[in-house]
Amino acid sequence: MVRATHWIGVVCVTILLLSGLQIFNAHPALYLGMDSDFAHPAASIGVAQRGERKIGVTTVFGRSFDTTGLLGVSGRNDAAERAFPAWATLPGYQDLATGRRWHFFFAWLLVLDGLAYLVFSLASGHVWRDLIPPARQLRRIGASVLDHLRLRFPRGEEARSYNVLQRLSYLAVIFVIAPLLVLTGLTMSPALDAVFPFVAPLLGGRQTARTIHFICAFLLLGFALVHVAMVLLSGVWNNMRSMITGWYRIKPEGSLHVGEN
């Protein structure tokens, strides 16, 4: 169940991210507060003219960066004027209506998937057994950070369960980032804003909620990139087999040491 919901979640999150960037491209600026102060966005992506050519300009809190080729202008000969490039949006061409269709369908699917995961994980003890780090792990958190930085991963029986950094990052994704994404997403709905009018002010207003939604999406992307890197570095075939089939193989300790020495 955990594995099935994980892989459905992967598909949903991928589509939500790509279609979300399509939606963002319709108005590539972020604001703080209830409404949009068009003259003073917290962040924006745009195009500027530099001599003969157009450059992509990304501005964050008044500081501008040349992001030609990636943000602002991209594609062949940097001819496409768009915030996020075609390869990062769904659909690849500019089409807000279709981006929204993808986004809302997979948002529903992800919420159902997430609920199934939560109910199962809480009922089966997965959360308590596998995710909440035991005190002895928390005490060794510094050592675990150093081990990860040196790409030395747990071996033997220890590798069967999540280590402390895994536990904390999974907990952050499941109980902080994902709920915030759902909450800020729902806050942007004018209908739900009428049902729960107290939520938007708590989040700093609708435009702040939209900004938080955007930031959380990138936090999730950052997590996913590190997560995939760890899967690849700590024994890709064994990990993938266990993530898909549940079967994780442990090499006898002795042979490993022989190999290393």
Binding site: F24, A26, D35, S36, L96, M188, P190, R206, R210
Partner: peptide, 12 residues
Amino acid sequence: TRHDCVEGWSCI
């Protein structure tokens, strides 16, 4: 009231 455009911006 707040006017929410499908593009993402809002004005009151």
